[in-house]
């Protein structure tokens, strides 16, 4: 089991904990007693806030999708703070309302610059151009690395796909934890509502056309408690990954 619980909800956490203990004690016939103390748990990880552990700052070097077609180069905006107690509130309507309100630009083809700051509400947020070391982009690692809130976040994303030719009937395939929305060249392509796990090809778009040359992908991942990450690739008509693309952040 794993109750996705956030740190900034102490009241709720307390209720859950109390509930757990009282429920356990009465329902499961465990005699009341002290909650056992945890054994010592050694810290073996590098706990410093370091971006380069999971990411490489994006360079001008040519970047292609990985062997399975996943897009690993992204412009990632520092998280917009959101008070979200549970991911199950992330319905389609919630996504639409929130993402149009907490947006840095309603021009979905805009390409921000690495290091640029933008305003979302009264928050001043900075863009990072990053290459993920894994097939997916772990936003939890990202927010930890830049020492920003890890839970209750909305993260905006942009990347630029260079296609050698026009490609019809391709599909954008994404998985995200938790909810997300995706746009291709300004057009809404995908909505992934709910308390989701990041699963490759969890949701696919309708048939789309990649233009010859630059295509702008915009994304937004929103997460309350728990892990936040996403993976994204393009599939051809047969469901196979498209790999003859190049990815840039400009």
């Amino acid at each position: 089991m794993n109750r996705k619980r956030t740190l900034f909800l102490p009241a709720m956490a307390l209720i859950i904990l109390l509930g757990l203990q009282s429920g356990v004690n009465t329902a499961l016939a465990q005699p009341p007693g002290q909650r056992p103390s945890l054994p010592p748990i050694p810290i073996t990880s590098d706990t410093t806030h370091t971006l380069t552990r999971h990411f490489v700052p994006a360079s001008a070097a040519k970047k292609t999708p990985d062997a399975k077609g996943f897009i690993q180069r992204w412009l990632v905006l520092e998280p917009v703070k959101k008070d979200i107690a549970r991911n199950s509130i992330l319905t389609d309507s919630y996504l639409r309302t929130t993402l149009s309100a907490d947006n840095f630009s309603s021009d979905y083809t805009i390409i921000p610059k690495n290091g640029q700051t933008v305003k979302v509400g009264d928050q001043e947020l900075k863009w990072y151009a990053l290459d993920s070391k894994t097939f997916n982009v772990n936003l939890y690692h990202f927010t930890y690395a830049i020492d920003k809130p890890r839970y209750g976040i909305l993260v905006w994303l942009v990347t630029v796909i260079d296609s050698p030719e026009e490609m019809k009937n391709v599909r954008l395939a994404a998985g995200a934890n938790s909810a997300s929305m995706w746009w291709l060249n300004g057009q809404e392509a995908l909505t992934i509502p709910g308390d989701r796990d990041m699963v490759a090809d969890n949701v696919t778009s309708q048939r789309l056309t990649l233009k010859k040359g630059k295509n702008v992908i915009r994304g937004a991942v929103i997460n309350g408690p728990g892990m936040a990450n996403f993976c994204l690739r393009f599939l051809n008509e047969k469901g196979a990954p498209i790999k003859n693309l190049t990815i840039s952040y400009r």
Binding site: M1, N2, R3, K4, R5, L7, A13, L17, L20, P36, L38, P39, I41, P225, G226
Partner: peptide, 14 residues
């Protein structure tokens, strides 16, 4: 698991 999941993801299995 000595912990309950969630919180700080610090866990121990015995």
């Amino acid at each position: 698991g000595a912990t309950g999941g969630g919180g700080n993801h610090k866990g121990a299995i015995l």
